Amino acid sequence: MEPSANRNRTAPMLSRFSSRLIDNIPAHINAKWRLKSLRKQLHEGYHLSEFDHHYLRYRTAGRGQFHLVFAADPPVTLECYDSLIRELSPRYRISVLELPGFGYSFPKHNFDFAFDHCVDDLANVLMHWRSGPYVLAFPCASAFFSLALAQRYPALVSHIAMMQAPDWQQEQHWKQRLDPKSLLRTPGIGQLLMKATQQKVARDWLGYASNTPAFTEQARPHITNQLHKGGCYCLASALQSSLPQKSPELGGITQPAMMIYGDQDRSHRKTDFNTIRLYSDDIRVQAIPGAGHFPELEYPQQFSRLIDQLLVNSGVHSTAIS
């Protein structure tokens, strides 16, 4: 199944179409010169690519039979993955991407953040890399992208390793708790609010969601620096369009899957993570004691051991596809 590069990108509501332009138009206009500057400063293993609807910044490392693909959990940046990469790269090939609309993965004017379109865009990225099937390790809301990719493009996905991911309904409750006045979820108002307060939102969220001071202190300057230099934090557009009230078609996955969560995540204190099994009874749910919202980054050694268990014990081997 091939994602359509020329599909109709019209948003379901005029207000949403207009409001996401508050994010997209400035990013699209500024992307060329910002990316030109970034390309001159790329460190080893960091990459910038252009796709039909967005630009993508990602980093690569390691070698091995399995290719793990991580999605950075906004506002976390690629630079925050050093410790995790050190743990995993001796055994696995690693790619970490900043999702379109976040960090230096700038959206173009025609990127609409709609869930199904995001899934197709990510499928295009994975096909472009030509090194699958992949082990998708996506956190929180983006974990639903990995479920949809596994269902709709099964040849691309060998395993799924989600983080902080309950079922869609529980994620809606989480979204409402974080935005009780519906400011971020209101088209236009949410985008303008984020433009005015993104540094504060990012700083407050990191301090609230992480339960590991060492990780918090290590990540904070990277996040501050990226936003200061024009990185994206299109949180309102993502909440409005990528995580709408109505659930997309999910479930029926056949790939071995695990959901790993930090049991000290204050933002998910009322979340029942076992509900992720709605999409497959075989999903293994595993806590990392003491970790907050970023278990893979706060406790990389423990996370690495769980990945080993998922990949070694599943009996599924990675076979490269073209």
Rank of each mutant, 00 (worst) to 15 (best):
M1F: 12
A5D: 02
R9Y: 05
S18W: 11
S19W: 01
L21R: 05
N24L: 08
I25M: 11
H28T: 03
K32P: 12
L35C: 06
L48C: 03
S49K: 14
S49V: 15
D52G: 03
H53M: 05
Y58V: 09
Y58M: 08
R59M: 05
T60S: 04
R63G: 13
Q65E: 12
F66D: 06
T77P: 14
E79N: 07
E87C: 07
L88F: 11
R91H: 12
Y92L: 06
I94C: 09
L97C: 09
F102G: 07
K108M: 11
F111Y: 13
D116E: 15
H117A: 13
D120H: 04
D121Q: 01
D121N: 01
L122Q: 05
H128F: 14
G132M: 03
L136K: 04
A143M: 04
F144K: 11
F144S: 15
A148K: 04
L149K: 08
P154V: 12
P154Y: 12
L156V: 01
V157R: 15
I160G: 01
A161Y: 10
Q169C: 07
Q170P: 07
Q170F: 03
W174M: 02
Q176V: 10
K181G: 14
G188C: 04
I189E: 12
M194H: 07
M194T: 13
K195R: 06
T197G: 14
Q199D: 10
K200W: 11
K200H: 13
W205G: 06
G207W: 06
G207V: 09
Y208M: 09
A209T: 09
S210W: 00
T216F: 01
E217N: 15
A219P: 07
I223C: 00
T224C: 05
Q226R: 08
H228M: 10
G230F: 03
C232R: 01
C234I: 05
A238D: 00
L239W: 08
Q240C: 05
Q240M: 11
Q240L: 15
S241L: 12
L243F: 09
P256A: 02
M258Q: 15
I260Y: 00
G262M: 00
Q264F: 11
D265S: 04
S267P: 11
H268E: 04
H268D: 13
R269N: 12
F273A: 02
I276M: 07
R277V: 07
V285W: 06
A287L: 00
G290E: 13
A291M: 10
G292D: 04
E298F: 10
Q301I: 13
S304L: 01
L306P: 02
D308F: 00
L310E: 05
L310N: 02
V312F: 01
N313V: 00
N313I: 00
G315F: 02
V316H: 09
V316N: 06
S318V: 10
A320F: 09
